[in-house]
Design a protein around this nucleic acid. Structure first.
Lengths: 212, 212
DNA sequence: TAGATTGTTAATCGATTAACAATC
DNA sequence: TAGATTGTTAATCGATTAACAATC
């Protein structure tokens, strides 16, 4: 059941997409689906779907296909869903606030339980259900709460130092929105969301079309 | 000079990273760099850097390496920077506002020139330097302004319809933050930023470590 | 010039696709 | 049972790495 070989980033990128599409199929009342029908829907090959899923187990049945809701649940487990993941957000700027307000995260078990800033004018203010705390309180807060994920929504100049502070206090998962690469040790998982790079990729592809 | 073969998504992802690192090198006064030194800094192989760059041209010099600022400028051109790109944002929620406030975009030539919402309570309000407009005004606004990029920061339920509206009015670049796949025709470029999927990838990798 | 380092070709590695026996 | 579709092995394709002649 536990994966033998390394899972490629390509597979990691597809797993949440399988999960999303299966969720949509459940919503529309579809109970079973073949790899071929799912491939048409998702615009990938059926072969790839079967290969991907068989990294984790044989979830289908010959001659039948896949049971949509049971595959949905299995992929949910593989993605580590189905349990609560506590998140703290560093930085209460627009992006931090946007993250704090995203209802969908809570719905998936990702609970934002703390928000921190260093600006005294902002500390104490309320953002949704959270009260912004002083960044100095992070070590205490982590000791008293089960913080799994730290979201870095502060400027580049502060990001490295604050990420290291999180790691020193036992946080092993960093969701990094700052425009730099964080190297925090082998046991720390860093997931980057770099909006500037995303915009540049868009721009590149547009420029490429014009060049031919 | 114009690329002969298809550029892989892997290369597209690395280009903005080259650009960022070269910018940082300029800031620290470095004038030339070898593929080997850049590879140590970026944690990729020197061979890969040379292969990537040679998709676009021979920017280096044997025995010398690469001139940092000229390579920076060349990659900037390749990424379509060095000209103004006008963006409109659909949706003035937290995410839309976060995008509108990002100073770095403007600094790179990405100008946010309009922001739209369908909520009458919000229309007319100011977000930074922008006044939120009615979504019904989008066609007129596009006719009167050179809108290159449409950012979709509205709920999934509205996203498809609004993206199609943009495309019908001539916008060919969509920056999509809604949690769905947009299929808008071969000549339309869609760049997706899916925060939920990003969080699931983080969660997956954490779960993987625990399973071993 | 000699040393360094590129641009590019060749070798390797890994991911995707195709094929088909197993089996529901 | 016959038909359908998986799980899995083999073939192909593409990306990464290694090697080295070209050359600054």
């Amino acid at each position: 059941m536990s994966p033998k070989k390394k899972i490629s980033t390509a597979v990691i990128h597809r797993l949440p997409k399988y999960y999303r599409h299966l969720g949509e199929l459940i919503d529309t009342g579809v109970q079973r689906i073949s790899s071929r029908d799912l491939s048409l829907r998702m615009r990938v090959t059926a072969s790839q779907i079967r290969q991907d899923l068989n990294h984790f187990g044989g979830f289908g049945q010959q001659g039948y296909g896949y049971n949509v809701s049971s595959l949905y649940n299995e992929i949910g487990k593989i993605l580590g869903l189905g349990k609560i993941h506590n998140i703290i957000i560093l930085g209460s700027g627009n992006l931090g606030q946007a993250l704090a307000h995203y209802q969908y995260f809570k719905h998936r078990g990702f609970h934002i339980i703390g928000m921190f800033d260093k600006d005294e004018k902002i500390i104490g203010k309320e953002v949704g259900e959270l009260k912004v705390m002083d960044i100095d309180q992070i070590p205490t807060f982590i000791k008293e709460n089960n913080v799994e994920i730290g979201a870095i929504a502060i400027p580049k100049s502060e990001a490295k130092r604050m990420a290291e502070l999180l790691v020193e206090n036992g946080v092993k998962q960093i969701w990094n929105f700052a425009h730099l690469d964080l190297h925090l040790g082998d046991d720390v998982i860093v997931e980057n969301v770099n909006l500037t790079e995303s915009l540049m990729r868009l721009s590149f592809r547009a420029a490429l079309e014009h060049r031919g």
